[in-house]
Structures are given as C-alpha cells and as structure tokens.
Design a protein around this nucleic acid. Structure first.
Length: 382
DNA sequence: AATGCGACCAACCGCTCTCTC
DNA sequence: CGAGAGAGCGGTTGGTCGCAT
C-alpha cells in the first residue's frame, strides 16, 4: 500500500523554477509565513505542488541561506559530524547555519567522498580502507556488510542492528547534539573569547590569536561613533579576514554581537592563498560603504580605499556582514548568480542605478536608499 | 569551433517520521 | 492504539557548465 502522492500532478509544473515563480513564492512566504505547504502553491498562485515549494524555499530562497563554496574548516567539520551521525544530512546541516542538508549532501557526494578515498579512508566508516575490511568480522552486535547495490550502482555498507542498539545509538547521538547545542547557548556578548575558543575546539587547530585580539579591541572601541571624519584613518591594522570570519563563526552566532563587532576599522581581508590566483573579484555585501581591496602580499588584501566612478573616496567605517563575502572565480559567475536570485537583470539594473548617482545626489543619498547591496571588489596588485 | 566528459547542484521520488483525531 | 495526512529526510536523477582534447 503505497503512500498517496502529495498532490495530483495533472497540470502542475515541474523542473527548474523561473524567476517569476521564485518571486511569487518568496513574496507569499515573506508576507504570510508558512502554515501549510499544501496550501502555499494555491494561495501564492503557483502551479507547483507544496512539496516542490517547500524544497525551493528551503534550499534556495530562504533569506538566511549562506552561499559560496565550503571552506576547508567546514569540510573538516562535516567529516567529523558524518563520522558520528552518518548520512543524517539534516542533523549535520543543523550545525551549519545557512547551509542546507541538500547542499551538504551534494558537497559530500561530489567532493568530500573523493577526498577521503584519496586519503585512503572509507567515506562510510571513516576508517582506513584496509582496516575496514579487517574490521567487518569483529562486530559482536553490529554486523557491517559491504554491499554493492546493482540497481543504484552504489557501494553501501548495510548495518544490521537490533532495535535496542539502534535506540542506544540514537540516544548517544542525541546527547552529543545536546552537548553541542548547549555549547552554542552559552555564548554571550561577554564571552566572545570563549565562543572563539569553543569553536576552535570544535573545528580543530587554527590561528585565532590575532583575530581574538582584534575582536577584543573592536568590541571595546566601537562605541566611538560612526562619524566619517573620525575614521579616515588609512593605516592598516591586523585584523581577521571577512572570509575567515565567515568560516570561523556562523552569522547567527554573531547576531547578538552585531553592535559590537561589525563596525570594523582598518580592516584587512585575508584571501585564501590557494584562491588568490583564481579569484579576481570578490562580491562584498556592505552597508554604508563599499570597498576596494588591493593585494598587499600573498594572501592578504588591504581594504583601504573606496573607489567610486573611478574616484578614490576616503573610506570611513565599513559595515560588513561577514557572510556577505563571496568569492567567485570570475565576475560573470557572480553576476549570473545575482541575476538568478534577484531577477534577470538585477546586476545591470543595480549597476546602472549606481552609475546614475548624479541624478540621485550624493553617494550617501544613494546608499541611504538601500539597506544592503553587493558591489564588485577589484583585487589587484598595488 | 565542435565534441566529449566530468563536476556540480537543483529538483524529484519515495520512504519514514510525526502529529492529530 | 491505529489510521491518515502532512512534513521531513535521504537517495537519486538529469540538466548545465566548464574544461580538455
């Protein structure tokens, strides 16, 4: 007795979503919230089934989604979590605010699996491949049977467990998760260092020293003000990269710290060394001002000058949302992604508006019109 | 320039889980 | 407690894109 389909599919649209459909769905959900997915397509005027709408919202339209490729640190954390949780993608995704289970699953299947195999590790058991073969006979209650599914063409390990064992492992996993979520909840404004060191523990070793120091400095000096005149300081201090901030902590973790952290002076962006040759443009989502970065050494970009219409403008205090930094290998890829998300000519429209500033008055007038936007940042040799 | 191939990822399918009555 | 409905989840597919030849 199979389950009934979520909707009768007659007359329903399938396949890729159009921009118009996205707009309809987004507008509907933002205005009305989500109560019943089944009703969403009807009420939003979409010829899709509720399930499809749900998926589109969750995996693509949700405003809190984090975009861009996975950092090595994120990959490592995924591996760690996968070794504990297995293919429970939604559970794994819950540790990465802004990432979806689908995204993590795709990344696992296309990249991480391969990476582990190259390292001689079994992506299923996380053990060295030889050891796995020896280990299959040692289980007492659990029997792991490597099995090749001919219909799917996949190699699978089928774990045969008693119900009790299953329940026990569920309990262990739940406890682990509670530990982690409990850790997250302990974060407070006064415990920024703890937050960082917790995350460091979670993600393995990394250099947080200078960032932590900078953070402390910024959290105490921020209250100075937003006056432009006060912040025309061209000197470049040591500071964490926007991108590194992104990978160090999720944006959600920063929400309660926003007032203290995000007005950063003398920022210096660290660009991953391996991408410096590949990435020419960075899309930086900024508020108040946007910035141009110059490569100052192998992996650092000095963000010191604001360029507008070819003129250098003194940079003031830069309000950067850390998760807004996205690196693309070419600018067109970014424009495509922007257009896909906000309309077919979103970037062009945005840019032409920008270039028509003269009609709108000053730069500040323009900026005041928008809560946020992206701008092309040129990384080039000084 | 054309073609083939692999990588990537959005979207779908079907099963399981959860909630309500 | 069981049935049914809806939501969620994980596996898989198929289209698109970029790169190599």
């Amino acid at each position: 007795m199979g389950r009934q389909p979520c909707c009768d599919k007659i007359g329903l649209k399938r396949g890729p979503w159009t921009i118009e459909e996205d707009h309809k769905l987004m507008n509907f959900i933002l205005n009305n919230g989500i109560h019943c997915w089944r009703m969403v397509p009807k009420l939003a005027g979409l010829l899709r089934c509720g399930k499809s709408c749900r998926l589109r919202w969750i995996n693509y339209l949700r405003p809190d989604l984090k975009r861009g490729s996975f950092t090595e640190m994120e990959e490592n954390q995924i591996i760690q979590l996968h070794s504990r949780l297995g293919n429970r993608w939604s559970k794994i995704a819950s540790h990465f605010p802004g990432r979806t289970d689908n995204e993590i699953k795709n990344h696992w299947n296309t990249r991480i699996k391969k990476k582990l195999k190259q390292l001689g590790l079994d992506p299923v058991t996380h053990k060295p491949i030889e050891q796995k073969e020896m280990g299959t006979s040692s289980g007492v209650n659990n029997e792991t049977i490597p099995e090749y599914n001919s219909s799917t063409g996949r190699e699978e390990n089928v774990e045969v467990k008693s119900q009790d064992d299953q329940a026990k492992s569920e309990l262990i996993i739940k406890k682990d998760e509670e530990k982690i979520s409990g850790k997250d909840e302990t974060v407070s404004v006064d415990e920024t260092s703890d937050l960082l060191s917790n995350y460091e523990m979670l993600c393995g070793s990394m250099d947080l020293g200078s960032w932590t120091n900078q953070l402390e400095t910024n959290t105490t000096t921020y209250s100075s003000s937003l006056s432009a005149d006060e912040s025309n300081n061209p000197s470049i201090g040591e500071s964490p990269s926007v991108q590194d901030m992104d990978s160090i902590l999720s944006w959600e973790s920063f929400n309660h710290l926003v007032d203290d952290i995000l007005f950063v002076e003398n920022i210096q962006c660290n660009i991953p060394a391996d991408s410096i040759s590949k990435v020419r443009w960075l899309a930086v989502r900024v508020e108040y001002f946007f910035v141009v970065g110059n490569v100052v050494d192998e992996n650092k970009v000095k963000v010191a000058t604001l360029h507008f219409e070819g003129k250098a403008i003194q940079w003031h205090q830069v309000f950067i949302k850390s998760y807004g930094l996205e690196a693309y290998q070419d600018w067109n890829a970014y424009v495509r992604s922007l257009n896909a998300r906000f309309g077919s000519h979103a970037y062009d429209d945005h840019l032409s508006e920008l270039w028509n500033l003269k009609q709108m008055g000053t730069l500040q007038d323009y900026l005041d019109e928008f809560d946020e936007f992206y701008l092309k940042v040129d990384i080039r040799e000084e």
